[in-house]
Amino acid sequence: MEAVIFFVGAAAALAGALGVIAARNPVHSALFLLMTLVSMSVFFLLLEADLVAIIQIVVYASAIVVLFIFVITLLGVDEKEARIEPLRFQRPLAIGFGALLFAQIVVIAGNDWATGQRSVVGPLDDDERSGNVRRVAETLFTEYIWAFEITAVLLVIAVVGGVILARRSGHRPSAEASNA
């Protein structure tokens, strides 16, 4: 049963990924991306990462894809992507480099270079305090509390930076406030 789910999910994920780079229309790309992201959430469920699977749907599939579609509607659909290539041979070279990259990843993984130590941070499931959400929360708020606080700062900086970048420049803030 797990094999069936895996292969159906893998087909959907790969089809979605190829659709993202093949679709002419950016809206279609965004919808193909959504297909891949939902399939990923199925894999996370298969790998016993319940909380990550739900967060994947909530954050990626809703928030990030909606943000993409929002910006596409704001900017207008631009289908006339350049057919002329400023760099000659860019397409074949890109596909060649892609094949090379894939071969490198497989060789590295196949040579056991990426070995790991078992259970450095803590086991997936604890007998006394079981439950994936509880285990993730405990680790996040004990072992990784410092990193967690830093991500809060990172998000604030990103949001403030986004607001400043997207604000219409050339106006004084007071003039803008009175116009609005």
């Binding site: 990462a49 909380l51 990550v52 967060i55 954050v59 990626y60 928030a63 990030i64 943000l67 993409f68 910006v71 704001l74 900017l75 790991g116 130590q117 078992r118 259970s119 450095v120 941070v121 803590g122 086991p123 997936l124 994936n132 285990r135 993730v136 680790t139 996040l140 072992e143 990784y144 990193a147 991500t151 990172l154 998000l155 900086i157 990103a158 949001v159 930076g161 986004g162 607001v163 970048l165 997207a166 420049s169």
Partner: peptide, 30 residues
Amino acid sequence: LDDIGGQVIVFFTLVVAAAEVAVGLAIIVA
């Protein structure tokens, strides 16, 4: 590897992705 750390790291990747999208789309709009 039976290690909960792998799942916790995903949250940090998610935060970086969200920050990247917020700033990147703002740059595109600008």
